[in-house]
Design a protein around this nucleic acid. Structure first.
Lengths: 234, 234
DNA sequence: TTGGGTCATTGATAATCCACAATAGATAAT
DNA sequence: ATTATCTATTGTGGATTATCAATGACCCAA
């Protein structure tokens, strides 16, 4: 953790009561009074694409709520093969396992520039003892993470490379009104879909040539959702 | 659910205080008094390999604890492709999502002959409000399921077919002192590993020829763990 | 401006896996 | 005993993907 602390751009102590995503956040059900019992500060940070938030095995002393950006959770096989097991976005909790496990279970690394709030695991643990809303909220986070994991298994690990890439594009452009999505390295795409970097690159390049996607600026793609869906599920 | 109720062999109302796996079960932390508040009975059942416990979308009125056997959770893609997203074993809860979701998220189907206890979702919901141990136990079930899902993604969706099959064999023979495991249809193996039935069959047949596994009785295999690990992770 | 570095793209080839088909083995029903 | 059915196995050819290699685009620092 210490290395990150030095790198991150501190934005100030968070003002939770003014938080723009207050309704969707882990601490949504907490009162002013509850917040007063958190003695260590909740800090707001900004990190860049590629920065690591924590490593697998680190002491799980902190939890994080994403305000914007995209974070990958990475696991490794004994031979060093990396696999991205989840992507986390706005309002998601990074380090959920901290409430139950002494150490983190993944590497957490930003894929885009990312803003987040950091709070001590102890705060969540303490408050969840007395606060049923928070408890419920935690449970529902677990459920949501598990749903994501199941989707991962069915959508990103079956079918041809072409289908997988289009499903990923659809997932990324989903709750985006303009149907565009910001991609990341071909290597990361491969690690999500269990395909090689080269295959990922070939598929993206082919989609570009066929105008299934149009690159409006660097790594930002406008997606033809209908045609992508045809590719993804036929 | 009604169809299953007719098929299942009723073994009697469960005597939880005498349960042989009491320590590892969801209701482990409950007192005699707690059990008295469950007005609907906890029933113990036995079902056969292939029997369905519930379907995706069914009302999630019941939860189940496995006493023995093996159960698959299945999801489907729009094109009908099935993918097994988790395997549940002794002491695992089938239908965990019932506490949060009105309907089940998967098909749950027995892969082996299976014994289990059924209890109403409402019992879990009610008791978890007042019983912190149960609440904690629920949370830890979610965590465990998520760990499994992550393992699934890294171990069963990466590498060659040969590697995946050997990893599955290792997983199945893991907490078995005699290093043997009971398999199931090649189709199910394929649905776990995202490979075709034929490829699964070829790999199993090849392992048999190479004596990496020895079939001691129908679908029961003695595993050469060391050599399988070489295959799995090299 | 130049050189080094990183990453996306593309090419060529080989390995792997899928799709389809046929066979064999086991089980259950008649 | 015979037939039907289901599943596992095996064969073959083709499609897909991995692997190895080369090139090009872009950025950064000297």
């Amino acid at each position: 953790m210490s290395k990150i602390l030095l790198k991150q751009a501190w934005q100030g102590v968070a003002n939770c009561s003014q938080c723009s995503i207050r309704q969707s956040v882990l601490f949504a059900g907490l009162s002013e009074k509850d917040f007063e019992t958190i003695h260590k500060p909740i800090n707001q940070f900004q990190i860049k694409a590629g920065d690591k938030i924590y490593s697998m095995g680190d002491d799980a002393t902190c939890m994080f709520t994403l305000r914007s950006g995209l974070v990958k959770l990475v696991q490794y096989l004994p031979d060093g093969t990396q696999r991205i097991v989840r992507l986390l976005r706005t309002a998601d909790v990074v380090g959920l396992e901290a409430t139950l496990s002494p150490t983190y279970k993944h590497d957490a690394i930003a894929l885009h520039d990312t803003e987040m709030c950091r709070y001590p695991t102890s705060a969540t643990k303490e408050l969840s003892k007395t606060n049923p809303t928070l408890h419920q909220e935690l449970m529902s986070r677990w459920e949501h993470a598990l749903n994501d994991a199941d989707t991962w298994a069915t959508e990103f690990s079956t079918g041809t490379a072409k289908q997988r890439v289009s499903r990923l594009l659809l997932m990324l452009s989903k709750d985006n009104p303009a149907n565009n999505c910001t991609l990341f390295s071909r290597e990361d795409i491969g690690a999500i879909l269990s395909i090689t970097t080269e295959t990922a690159s070939r598929m993206i390049a082919e989609f570009k040539r066929q105008h299934l996607i149009v690159e409006t600026s660097f790594n930002v793609f406008l997606c033809d959702v209908d045609r992508l869906e045809e590719v993804a599920y036929d």
